[in-house]
Design a protein around this nucleic acid. Structure first.
Length: 549
RNA sequence: GCGUCCGUAGAUCAACUGGAUAGAUCGUCUGACUUCGGAUCAGAAGGUUGUGGGUUCGAUUCCUACCGGACGCACCA
């Protein structure tokens, strides 16, 4: 926002540059009635050895610049801006598609790794967060002018496939799996687990088949490929419901099988590996050691992730690589970055673990083992079903139901754990997606009254409620930039909530369609601007904005 | 045991990362124009910010010790 820099510069000059430019902080006052922007003067007190209030009044005396008014309150200097100029500018620009677009990304590439469900396991609500946060970050980064590559790093490899193949050969039924792949495969896996407890031979069998799979045994590979295809088909149904199906690649763990040996060799060459109890590990000063190769020569999660990171750097030459993965993997990513750094690559600093809190149930982690998984697809369908009391239009029900689910997740700051609560997810009133969508739809119906006519600002009084809306719309791109820098979509969600709340307050207070025609059309322009920012915000979050609902 | 994160109204979350009288939503209670869309709006009640110290002009935010919780910590991913 230009006004912020103007004010800082004016204050800087008024202080006769006795205070460093960077030390001048600008913020929004607690209450909007106190001013549009504020400069706290407490920090200057030490440097200038005067009371903050006194400094504030001295600044005010020496201040040049075109403000509506400047008010001293406590140690604060509160600025009221001239409304007309900004309003005119905002109304001229905000209704264009793509309002708020930024360019600081400069076309550089950001790789985002998100969603990543596990093959042959249910797509649970636990995967919702990674999926929607990753998708929102994708949109936000694009809005900032970055090129984005969205990667769905499927969990499609590992010893569990040996077990699954063994289980299938024992008890599997092709027909059943075709009909209901995930449930059947999960059932096989669970049964194998149970019987394994009493029968050690089974464990050996599982290991045997995984080894065969690794060696490329045709039957095993074909089974694996089939499991993967069937699972992915079913995942796609969920992705389509969510409206998040635009991944650039679904290459998962298996894709890196032939790329790990090179990494191990390089680690060896650089003398980073040490031997410990027959396994190869990397040790650190500050972190616990990372196991790279097992006693039996098999690779591990971090080995694969190293290969992945190098492949991505080479393929995409990213400026940033984001991993939208839960809190519980923090140590893993610290180790990953530390190893890459040890190998002498600075791009380790461009890797960011965008961590998020878990979805808990009864205060505990959900897990397949305890039978505590809730399938995401079921939750989504329930959400859609709940809209039936408002409409029969399926597409509309989908947009609203899914909007509620996605918005509910994204409005919370990502790193906190959240308790799974179906009632909260399915709520349509208050701080929810449908509330925002409803406001948008209401605006669209108002806009039917809009005429193609030029208006004059001369006789228009921009009252507080209108001004708050305009000023907020004006601030949109700042929010996007902040959301990108913090990798935090919730800032967009919170922003659009307050914008719609403000709008609804105004709507209840002032009749839009009353007054002279010039004023009516002016108000409709305000509506249009607010509507377009609501729509843009929702689309950044991956939520659709129906025109009617 | 060690490490990371968390603890704010009855519930779910905010607080611009150290700033002004700690704000919203749900729930509860009371209201709203013979309606530009009531999936809305106005109002009421609800707080010693887990506890005790400390740092400073100023602390929900930083430091410290406890209490309580979640998650990690070598052959799963």
């Amino acid at each position: 926002m230009i006004e912020k820099e103007k004010i800082i510069t004016d204050v800087y000059n008024a202080l006769q540059k006795k205070v460093a430019y960077e030390d001048i902080i600008i913020e929004q006052p607690k209450e909007r009635s106190m001013g549009d922007l504020a400069i706290p003067c407490f920090g200057f007190a030490k440097i200038l050895k005067k009371a903050p209030q006194q400094i504030a009044s001295e600044i005010k005396e020496n201040l040049k610049g075109d403000y509506h008014s400047v008010v001293i309150a406590g140690g604060y200097l509160n600025f009221f801006l001239k409304r007309a100029g900004i309003t005119e500018k905002v109304l001229a620009e905000a209704h264009h598609d793509g309002y708020g677009q930024l360019s600081f990304g400069g076309g550089k590439t950001i790789v985002i790794d998100y969603s990543a469900p596990n093959i042959a396991k249910p797509f649970s609500v636990g995967h919702l967060r990674s999926t929607v946060i990753g998708n929102a970050l994708r949109n936000i980064c694009q809005k900032c002018g970055y090129q984005v590559v969205g990667i769905n790093h499927l969990g499609d490899w590992g010893t569990q496939f040996g077990k699954l193949i063994a289980a299938y050969k024992k008890w599997g039924d092709e027909e059943k799996i075709r009909k209901n792949p995930i449930d059947e495969l999960t059932a096989l896996y669970v049964r194998f687990h149970q019987e394994e407890q009493n029968d050690e031979k089974l464990s050996d069998e599982g290991r045997y088949y995984f080894r065969q799979l690794e060696l490329g045994n045709e039957e095993c590979v074909n089974l694996w490929r089939w499991f993967r295809e069937e699972s992915l088909k079913e995942f796609m149904k969920t992705y389509q419901l969510l409206g998040i199906d635009n991944f650039d690649t679904y290459d998962g763990e298996a894709f890196y099988n032939d790329k790990m040996q090179k990494v191990i060799e390089e680690l060896d060459d650089k003398n980073i590996l040490t031997n410990s109890e027959g396994a190869k590990v990397v040790t650190f000063d500050q972190l616990p050691p990372a196991l790279i190769e097992k006693q039996d020569g098999a690779t591990l999660y971090i080995t694969r992730d190293l290969a992945t990171a190098f492949y991505r750097k080479k393929t995409y030459d990213f400026a940033e690589a984001l991993y939208v993965v839960g809190n519980e993997q923090q140590l893993h990513f610290q180790q990953l970055k530390a190893i890459i750094k040890k190998m002498g690559y600075n791009f380790a600093d461009d890797i960011f673990h965008v961590n998020f809190g878990m979805i808990l149930q009864d205060g505990k982690k959900m897990s397949t083992r305890h039978g505590k998984t809730v399938k995401l697809h079921d939750v989504l369908e329930e959400a859609i079903e709940k809209v039936s009391s408002y409409t029969n239009d399926y597409e509309l029900k989908r947009k609203v139901g899914i909007g509620a689910v996605i918005f509910n997740d994204l409005k919370h700051y990502r790193t906190n754990d959240v308790e799974f609560n179906l009632d909260d997810i399915l709520r349509f009133e208050g701080e929810t997606g449908p509330y925002v969508q409803y406001t948008y739809a209401r605006i669209q119906s108002l806009l039917k009254n809009k005429k193609e006519m030029s208006i004059t600002m001369e006789n228009i009084v921009i009252n507080d409620l209108i001004w708050y809306l305009v000023f907020k719309v004006y601030n949109f791109s700042n929010i996007i930039e902040k959301a990108k820098n913090d990798y935090d979509p919730s800032q967009v969600a919170k922003y659009v909530l307050t914008l719609t709340q403000d709008f609804n307050k105004w709507y209840a207070e002032e009749r839009i369609m009353e007054g002279d025609e010039n004023y009516i059309q002016f108000k409709l322009l305000v509506c249009e601007a607010v509507g377009s920012v609501i729509k843009e915000s929702l689309s950044l979050l991956g939520v659709e904005a129906p025109k009617k609902m």
